[in-house]
C-alpha cells in the first residue's frame, strides 16, 4: 500500500464574524478532511477568531491561469470602480 509521507495540503477559509463571508486564512497539511478541520481550528483560530471554518483540498481549487502573460501584469486600474476601496465609507458605518 502506498502511504505518501507528506499529508495533502488544504486551504482554510474562516468566517470570523456572523454575517460575513468565509475568507481565505491560509493552508495546512492534514491526512483527511476531519483532521484538516480540527487542525484548522487549532492553527487558524488560536485566538478564537472563527465562528465557522471551511477546508478544501488545495488540489480541488481551480485557479484562473494567465495564459496571456500580459493580462495579469496590467493592473486593472481602468476598472477601479470594481474595487471596494474605491468608495469612501465613513468609519462610523462599520464593516461593509
Amino acid at each position: 500500500m502506498s502511504t505518501p509521507d507528506q499529508w495533502p495540503l488544504w486551504e482554510v477559509f474562516v468566517r470570523s464574524k456572523n454575517g460575513l463571508s468565509h475568507k481565505h486564512s491560509g493552508s495546512l497539511h492534514a491526512p483527511d478532511a476531519e483532521m484538516a478541520l480540527k487542525n484548522a481550528r487549532d492553527v487558524y483560530t488560536r485566538r478564537s477568531e472563527g465562528t465557522s471554518i471551511w477546508v478544501v483540498p488545495s488540489s480541488a481549487i481551480v485557479a484562473s491561469a494567465p495564459d496571456e502573460k500580459e493580462v495579469l501584469f496590467a493592473p486593472s486600474d481602468d476598472k477601479v470602480y470594481r474595487h471596494p476601496t474605491f468608495y469612501e465609507i465613513p468609519d462610523e458605518v462599520g464593516h461593509m
Binding site: 505518501p4 491526512p31 488540489s59
Partner: peptide, 30 residues
C-alpha cells in the same frame, strides 16, 4: 514518521471504503 504514516494509511483506507471521499494528494494550487 510512524505517526504521519499511520494517518496517511488510515486516510487511504477510508477513501477506499468510501470512494466519494477520496482526494488526490497533489501539491499546491492556490
Amino acid at each position: 514518521a510512524w505517526v504521519r504514516e499511520a494517518a496517511s494509511a488510515y486516510a487511504a483506507k477510508q477513501s477506499a471504503r468510501r470512494p466519494a471521499a477520496g482526494l488526490p494528494a497533489k501539491p499546491h494550487a492556490a
